[in-house]
């Protein structure tokens, strides 16, 4: 464990807490893409299956459980508890277009062709694009709630590096949309 990873983990933790807190207190999940949250739950589920097979440390186990539990809790809040406030008409990204290529790529490009390794690789690929439904939603509505952040560590791993670069580009796009649409309040409007 180094300071960068710890800060990354804690930022992630805080981002999730802010998101859950905001949904809970506003009693609304307007502006949040349920589809992105489903993809993140899929990312954590496919990556943290090693919870069953390998014990690393109490910190590691608790963080993995927290990320899993909080992503399923977010899905519950969006699709069950505050379903009425979920903006599903604007959350129309076809997630199969992200899941299927990620599965295919994980089957083709991986370090080792084994069940857990392919799932781990799938989770890395999927994480890099899981924000796309949220990005799509912001570009349509010009609204955004909290953004969850994700990170990669400086481990020389080509799969993680390429996925990280793709993810960074997408997040830059998100930042651009946030500035131009959300902060400046410019909404695209169709002529009457």
């Amino acid at each position: 464990m180094n300071i960068f990873r710890l800060l990354g983990d804690l930022s992630h933790l805080i981002a999730i807490i802010i998101l859950l807190h905001k949904i809970w207190h506003s009693r609304s999940c307007a502006g949040i893409s349920g589809k992105s949250q489903v993809l993140f739950a899929l990312v954590y589920t496919s990556r943290y299956l090693d919870l069953i097979t390998t014990y690393v440390s109490l910190y590691n186990t608790l963080m993995k459980i927290f990320f899993l539990a909080s992503s399923y809790a977010t899905i519950y809040l969006i699709y069950v508890k505050f379903r009425a406030t979920y903006d599903k008409n604007h959350d129309t990204f076809r997630i199969e277009f992200l899941i299927l290529p990620s599965v295919l790529l994980a089957l083709l490009i991986n370090h080792q062709f084994s069940f857990l390794e392919v799932l781990w690789t799938f989770s890395i690929y999927l994480e890099s694009v899981a924000i796309l439904p949220q990005l799509f939603m912001v570009s349509k509505t010009g609204e955004a709630e909290s953004i969850t952040s994700h990170y990669f560590e400086y481990h020389y791993d080509l799969i993680a590096i390429v996925a990280g670069v793709v993810q960074t580009v997408l997040y830059c796009d998100f930042f651009y949309l946030y500035i131009t649409k959300v902060l400046k309040g410019k909404k695209l409007q169709l002529p009457a």
């Binding site: 090693d50 390998t54 590691n60 390794e117 781990w120 481990h155």
Partner: peptide, 10 residues
């Protein structure tokens, strides 16, 4: 090193 060897990473 494979991805699943990195058990301590989140």
């Amino acid at each position: 090193e494979s991805g699943t060897d990195l058990h301590d990473e989140l």
